[in-house]
Amino acid sequence: MSRRTEQIGGTRQRIVDAAVALHGSVGPARTTIAGIAGKAGVTRLTVYRHFADDEALFSACSAHWLSQQRPPVPAEWSRENDPLERLRVGLSDLYRFYRDGEAMLTRIYADLAELPEAHRKVLASRNDHFRNVLLEPFPEAATNNRLRATVSHGVSFWTWRSLCHDNGLSNDDAVDIMSTLIAAAAGTHPSIAP
C-alpha cells in the first residue's frame, strides 16, 4: 500500500512540476492539460484524476512554487513605527521577492485575467494587505487618496518591473525613488541621497 501511495504522490508531483515549469515559461493562459501531461510523462486522464479542475491544479502549482521562494513578510515591516523607515523595509523586502521570482511573476501577472477567480482575488487581497501595512504609520493615510494611490503603485509588481527590469535600476534605487514619491504624496520630504 505504501509503495502505491508513493507512486501516486510521485505522479502528482511530476504533474505539479510540469505545470509550474509551463506556467513559468509560457504562462498559465497558454498552459494546456495536454502540455502538462506531455511534460510530466502521463496521460491527460491521469492529470484529471489528480486534479479535478484548473483551480485545483493552479492551487497546487502556486503552493509548490511559493514553497521554494522566500515571500515578503509584512509582519516584520510592522516593527518599524516610522512611516518612511517602514516604506524602506517593506519595499526592499517586496522588491527582493519580485526580483527573485521575476520570471514566474511576469507570466502570472500578464495572464491575470485568465487565472481562476479565487486566485485573482488572492493576489488583489495580498497587494491590498501590503499597501495597508505600509500605510499604517502615516497619520493621514485614511484621508489622503494621493498617498493611498501612490503606495498602491509602489507595491505593484509592474512598478518594480518597469523600474528595475525595463530601466535597469537596482532594487535599492527603486526603493529610494518610490519612498521619495510616497513621501511627497504624504506631504513629507525625506532627505535621500541620490
Results as ranks from 00 to 15, higher is better:
43 T>M: 11
57 L>E: 01
91 L>T: 01
180 T>W: 07
49 R>V: 09
56 A>P: 06
57 L>C: 05
160 W>S: 01
86 R>H: 02
23 H>L: 13
185 A>P: 01
193 A>F: 13
1 M>H: 11
117 E>A: 08
194 P>R: 15
103 A>R: 15
91 L>G: 00
15 I>W: 00
59 S>H: 03
144 N>L: 04
95 Y>L: 12
6 E>I: 13
36 I>D: 00
168 G>F: 02
107 R>I: 11
181 L>I: 15
148 R>P: 01
96 R>K: 15
54 D>L: 12
18 A>M: 10
124 A>N: 06
188 T>R: 07
42 V>C: 06
148 R>F: 01
90 G>N: 06
141 A>L: 04
5 T>I: 14
76 E>Y: 08
131 R>D: 00
170 S>D: 07
127 N>H: 06
116 P>L: 00
83 P>E: 04
123 L>A: 13
159 T>D: 11
140 E>A: 08
147 L>Q: 02
45 L>Y: 11
142 A>V: 03
144 N>S: 07
2 S>T: 10
113 A>F: 06
6 E>S: 14
7 Q>W: 15
187 G>N: 05
108 I>A: 06
167 N>V: 04
35 G>R: 10
26 V>L: 10
67 S>K: 08
173 D>T: 15
116 P>S: 02
182 I>S: 00
186 A>W: 00
103 A>S: 15
190 P>H: 03
91 L>M: 07
184 A>E: 13
154 G>M: 13
55 E>T: 05
109 Y>E: 08
174 A>R: 08
17 D>Q: 13
62 S>W: 07
82 D>F: 02
143 T>M: 10
178 M>A: 07
90 G>C: 06
174 A>M: 09
25 S>N: 10
65 W>H: 13
62 S>D: 14
25 S>Y: 10
39 K>V: 09
194 P>C: 13
35 G>C: 08
128 D>Q: 08
181 L>Y: 04
134 L>Q: 01
119 H>Q: 12
176 D>Y: 11
76 E>P: 05
18 A>Y: 07
174 A>L: 09
60 A>I: 10
51 F>Q: 01
41 G>M: 09
77 W>H: 04
87 L>K: 08
173 D>Q: 15
185 A>C: 08
38 G>P: 02
9 G>D: 14
18 A>H: 07
177 I>M: 15
81 N>D: 13
35 G>S: 07
23 H>Q: 11
59 S>R: 00
135 L>A: 03
50 H>L: 06
29 A>K: 12
121 K>W: 04
109 Y>P: 02
142 A>C: 03
87 L>V: 04
143 T>P: 06
48 Y>T: 12
112 L>F: 15
21 A>E: 09
69 Q>K: 09
132 N>K: 10
66 L>H: 09
142 A>G: 03
45 L>R: 13
15 I>D: 01
55 E>V: 01
96 R>T: 15
110 A>L: 12
55 E>Q: 05
123 L>P: 03
133 V>A: 04
120 R>A: 06
58 F>C: 02
127 N>A: 11
76 E>D: 14
139 P>F: 01
64 H>M: 05
89 V>Q: 09
184 A>M: 10
129 H>Y: 12
3 R>F: 09
155 V>G: 04
188 T>V: 14
57 L>A: 05
128 D>K: 07
188 T>C: 05
118 A>I: 09
134 L>N: 01
142 A>N: 03
175 V>A: 06
9 G>W: 08
71 P>H: 10
161 R>Q: 12
181 L>W: 04
